[in-house]
């Protein structure tokens, strides 16, 4: 893939460059801040931009940069790499876009396979969320929303957690060792219990299920 990269930490930037090259990706732009990257990408096409969240323009330049890139190049995938996995940032990221977007911890992309898998899934239009964060959000819901979660069976919660990681039905089936048909059934139940009705397109409802869940945690305070 054609990859653009902005990260202000030189050590991490250089390491990521080498790993990306080893994985066979083409680096079309590399910068220490968001403004430079946006300028470089005006003339160079890229499939995906990898952004640090906490970089210039301070304080959270990655988010501002992502908004500008999404507006200028709607088809470009966006991957945020950060030292922190926080639901606050996840919500802000999902406000920028709910397709071809990802948020992972910096130390969790340290292999060619994981890095390429993450980039490919984003390239395919998926939302990729750091599993640690997805797990925390689903397993520790805000207590006042426990009724919502309590309505879901244990298996449905497992499915929602994997949906929150951005996995496809096939991917969820593989993880849970069940048939894709069974996954479809669970997802239909989740949609029903979360009040997401059939007049909305399937993939849109998937994202809405995850968002409904995440927002219920944030707005329910």
């Amino acid at each position: 893939m054609r990859v653009a990269l902005a990260e202000d930490g030189a050590l991490f930037r250089e390491g990521l460059l080498m790993l990306l090259k080893a994985a066979g990706h083409e680096i079309v732009a590399c910068a220490a801040g968001g403004d430079e990257l946006v300028a470089m990408l005006r003339t160079r096409p890229a499939d995906i931009a990898i952004l640090d969240i906490r970089m210039p323009p301070e304080p959270d330049g990655g988010l501002v940069t992502a908004e500008r890139l999404r507006a200028a190049h709607p088809d470009m995938g966006l991957l945020f790499l950060s030292h922190y996995a926080e639901s606050h940032y996840l919500m802000r990221i999902l406000e920028i876009g709910t397709d071809a977007i990802g948020y992972r911890l910096k130390e969790k992309v340290g292999s060619v396979e994981v890095l390429t898998d993450t980039l490919t899934r984003i390239g395919d239009g998926e939302i990729v969320i750091e599993p640690l964060l997805a797990k925390r959000l689903v397993e520790r819901p805000r207590a006042e929303r426990k009724d919502l979660v309590a309505a879901l069976s244990e298996r449905e919660t497992d499915v929602l957690k994997l949906m929150a990681e951005g996995r496809s039905n096939g991917g969820i089936a593989g993880q849970l060792f069940v048939t894709p048909k069974a996954v479809e059934k669970h997802i239909a139940n989740i949609f029903g219990k979360l009040g997401l009705h059939a007049d909305v397109a399937e993939d849109h409802r998937r994202v809405l299920a995850v968002l409904t869940y995440l927002r219920s945690q944030r707005d329910g305070e």
């Binding site: 050590l11 991490f12 390491g15 080498m18 130390e107 340290g110 060619v112």
Partner: peptide
């Protein structure tokens, strides 16, 4: 940052 960069070098 150093530790994160190390995980990349190990990979």
């Amino acid at each position: 940052l150093r530790v994160s960069a190390l995980t990349l070098r190990l990979g």
